[in-house]
Amino acid sequence: MNALKNPPGVKTTGMWLFVLSDLLTFATLLVIYTALRIANPDWPRPFTLSPAIVYATIMTVVLLASSLTMVWAVAAMAEDDRKNTVKWLLATIAGGIAFIALHLTEWRHLVLEDKITASTGLFGAVFFGVTGLHMLHVACGAVYLSILTAGVARGKFSAEDIETGGLYWHFVDLVWMFIFPLVYLMAVKP
């Protein structure tokens, strides 16, 4: 429709704006968590070191690893190496799916074994609220990257598109860097 196209960098700017806005949404949730926790001195701390924290650490490493493959995908696309881009993108999506699978297993364990759900108290509310929103972001990211992968394989999309997708994926990773210590580590059994 428009003969004129945007100069390079516009998409990156747009994605950064989204990232900043969404970071504030997550920050708000974490601030609410903090305020509620201050208001409730008897805040439960149900996590055991093993398996709960070990498990969560593995999840963190998996997510970090998917960020690393994403960086390689972006780098490959910058050199117009579509074959390797697709390879690393697929690896990233696999990492994301693995993270979700691990996460759901953990949720299942909490609900079935520890009898903690969103409605059993504020700990469950915060835990499932915050990690649920994050998991939604990972799932959206997996869909987003799948669309990119399919496009790259068919010769569509530019290096900037992959860079933009990478920004989103790293942002999801970055948010987890705050959720892991605040939601998990600060709730280890004393």
């Binding site: 806005s21 969404d22 504030l24 949404t25 997550f26 708000t28 949730l29 609410i32 509620l36 969103a118 409605s119 504020l122 469950g124 509310a125 499932f128 609220g129 929103l133």
Partner: peptide, 22 residues
């Protein structure tokens, strides 16, 4: 501003539908 309202809205919706008590 809308980022913060979105967070508030999500929590309020959880209070209503998931039985949380934020």
């Amino acid at each position: 501003a809308f980022a913060v309202l979105l967070a508030g809205g999500i929590l309020l919706l959880l209070d209503r539908t998931a039985g949380t008590s934020f």
